[in-house]
Design a protein around this nucleic acid. Structure first.
Length: 299
DNA sequence: TAAGATAAGAGGGACAT
DNA sequence: ATGTCAGTCTTATCTTA
């Protein structure tokens, strides 16, 4: 899902004409300079089943705040996914079930109430985590599927909607950690991850592994690191990928360590503590990952 | 003060029972 | 369904340069 979209502007650092947007960040594919984060995705993201097709992307809120007026807007009848590709037969089938659920829920006060509460929580989280509408839409969609599977029974709405949002982030390749999401809605990381795994299992979702390279941009901007350092860090990660030492490791930890080692090479002194803070992990983890990474020869 | 080392504890996956 | 096992990450504490 992480398609790159070319942009016409020039990079303000290297001047080249290679700006792309990916994972909600606008950056230069030549030098890696990040021009803006959290920009709204310019790709196709919604289709409308009603007649008002020409709504501006940046205009009014649409389906998210209209849960009480008509759920049908969120599931378009075209059987296309967010990027406009046709859906698989399996997806079509589940969409049909979902439409049935929607038509039923308008006369089912309990489901309706649940949705209202979940969506208002979702909006809060979306603001706190600075996420795009597209991700929120995706999260709402996942949540409805979870509702349909009766996954709320015995679980808190907060946990379920939070894990839906986390899943949406993962699917979109936007780096948000379990920790960030869980603290945005005041549930424990443990609950969130348990709920997230349940959703993956029950809904049979397949998530891409978090790309540690995309974590680099995030950490580096928090820690104020130079482009040069970032480039070295990416080299480290590429090498690490070849050597297959990335598997099973926390991507934020890997990215943080790569940046740390890179910052030594570029004489850009940053402490392990600061890196760990920026990466949302601990110094110990940074050190352990560094041990793995040090055996690699990157020049 | 920063970095390295060590140990205890938690949570989750794989696998067997 | 439940238990065990190996591997990972986190937290806390101590040592080293």
């Amino acid at each position: 899902m992480s398609q790159q979209i070319q942009n016409k502007e020039k990079c303000s650092r290297c001047g080249k004409n290679n700006l792309v947007t990916e994972s909600g960040e606008l950056f230069c594919s030549s030098c890696g300079f990040v021009i803006a984060e959290k920009i709204s995705d310019s790709g196709p993201e919604r289709m409308f089943s009603d007649t008002s097709v020409n709504k501006s992307r940046t205009g009014d809120r649409t389906s998210l705040t209209r849960h009480d007026q008509g759920l049908s807007t969120i599931i378009n009848p075209l059987n296309k996914d967010a990027s406009g590709k046709p859906l698989s037969a399996l997806m079509k089938a589940s969409l049909n079930q979902l439409r049935k659920l929607n038509s039923r829920s308008s006369v089912n006060p309990s489901v309706d109430r649940n949705l209202q509460q979940a969506l208002s929580e979702l909006l809060k989280m979306k603001e706190k985590l600075s996420l795009s509408d597209a991700v929120a839409e995706k999260a709402a969609y996942i949540y409805r599927k979870a509702l349909e599977r009766k996954l709320v029974r015995g679980r808190s709405i907060s946990a379920l909607i939070a894990s839906s949002l986390y899943a949406a982030c993962r699917e979109s390749g936007i780096p948000r950690t379990l920790k960030e999401v869980s603290s945005a809605i005041n549930i424990t990381k443990k609950d969130l991850s348990a709920c997230y795994r349940l959703i993956l299992k029950e809904l049979d979702l397949k998530m891409p592994v978090v790309d540690s390279v995309s974590c680099i941009a995030k950490i580096a901007s928090i820690a104020n690191l130079s482009e040069k350092t970032k480039r070295y860090a990416i080299k480290f990660l590429k090498k690490a990928e070849q050597e297959q030492i990335l598997a099973g490791k926390d991507p934020m930890g890997m990215a943080g360590s790569a940046l740390y080692l890179a910052s030594i090479m570029t004489d850009e002194h940053i402490t392990q503590k600061d890196i760990a803070m920026a990466a949302g992990t601990t110094e110990v983890t940074i050190r352990n990952r560094c041990k793995n990474l040090r055996s690699l020869n990157v020049s």
